[in-house]
Design a protein around this nucleic acid. Structure first.
Lengths: 227, 227
DNA sequence: TAGCATTAATCTATCGATAATATTGCATCA
DNA sequence: TGATGCAATATTATCGATAGATTAATGCTA
């Protein structure tokens, strides 16, 4: 999956751009689940020829965000309640493992990184309060969660963890479409951070699991097809 | 990754064929780590034009088997000791989780499937004895391991588990190139099966972990570059 | 002769066109 | 009227050609 392949620090090709743009639009929910991805149409939309588009779609196939049916073109990956819970379960497994390892190995810089990320997120939380969180909140939220597990040095675990984070985000954005729920998410984040910095793996993992599950439950209550 | 995307039951395109063939050749070790994948060259080798080859390579990028460097083409993914152990660790995590779930949920058909797969594998083991295991052994070996976790119904876990199995196989085939080690692999398989059928998760997971680690150790002792 | 710049050769990424396949609409028949 | 087969249309997968970038080779300068 794109998140596995080591990022290229070399020239950016049109394929790379198309890949990034399409990925973003699918995760955003701008391109809806099951939507037919007609190459001729996307060509105009992203300003390239057919080849870069097709290659980008092929790559996204590996991420599980696009589905290719032989001779019938591409579609945005569909969503279902059962898959949402499947993803959440898998995500919890990886996240807890990464978190434990991080707690075992983390040094001062790691601790500082968490506190900084939390500070930036909570600053935004209090400023927004009831306003809908935008692009910036998504970024800081992701950075906070990433900072927690950043002392885990397994590249594969990190890559898969990140991919699952993105998958979950897709579900969240599709369902909640920017309107945050009424539960006290900032407090949950704080509790997770506190347990983590106290090096209490047990509690931290439990809290993370609940954190993920609550979101999944909220998402699953909205109108998603199938299962 | 290709193993994530639900298999298409529709028409097989040239891209699909090229993807399957390339994947096979990389996992086999026929295409060696770091090898430059020149499209012009592969065209002739797999009997298609450039587009299907490029799309197949793009997909393989997602599996982590091919590395794309912008404007500098594709290469077979490199290998290193550190990555081998990283993969093994991750693999053990997923496999044990899947195995536990399987042991919890498995019914009679699951048990029967394991015994059948084990029987087929051991039949071949005793016939081969010291001969080098070929294509058939690889298939039955994979089937045996798959049968153990087949009662786990998480599609994501299964897909990632399978991908990691393939990654490990690549390392094994590159390093051991068909010559099996001198350790009693058949006995290890038997012990794993016994613990699994006895529904003893704890023991089964320990044995599986050791099983994986022994292979990794053996592989890492051969001449692999880096780290 | 070592280092640098410039040109030549090679390869990659991308485009536009085409053949093969799937889908749609329509007419026919039971 | 509903189903079935056929023709017209639209799309997909694939090819061959080309522009653009990279690497290798060459010659020039100090």
């Amino acid at each position: 999956m794109g998140s596995i392949s080591t990022l290229t620090q070399t020239a950016v090709t049109l394929t790379d751009q198309a890949y990034a743009a399409l990925r973003m639009d699918i995760l955003n929910g701008k391109l809806k689940p099951g939507f037919k991805l007609r190459v001729e149409h996307l060509k105009g939309l992203y300003g390239t020829g057919a080849s870069p588009i097709r290659e980008a779609l092929s790559r996204l196939t590996g991420d599980g965000l696009v589905h290719a049916e032989g001779r019938r073109g591409f579609r945005v990956g569909r969503v279902s309640r059962s898959e949402l819970f499947d993803i959440t379960k898998m995500r919890t497994l990886l996240e807890c493992h990464a978190l434990k390892e991080s707690i075992d190995k983390g040094d001062d810089a790691w601790e500082a990184g968490i506190m900084a990320a939390f500070y930036r997120l909570s600053k935004l939380d209090s400023r927004l309060l009831l306003a809908s969180p935008g692009e910036e909140w998504e970024v800081r939220h992701k950075e906070f969660h990433t900072s927690l597990v950043s002392a885990c040095d397994s590249r594969w675990l990190q890559a898969h963890r990140q991919n699952l984070f993105d998958q979950s985000e897709r579900y969240r954005r599709i369902a909640l479409s920017m309107k945050n729920s009424d539960r006290p998410v900032p407090e949950e984040h704080k509790a997770i951070m506190t347990a983590t910095l106290a090096r209490d793996s047990e509690t931290a993992c439990t809290l993370i699991g609940e954190h993920f599950n609550r979101t999944a439950e909220a998402v699953s209550r909205t109108a998603l097809i199938e299962d």
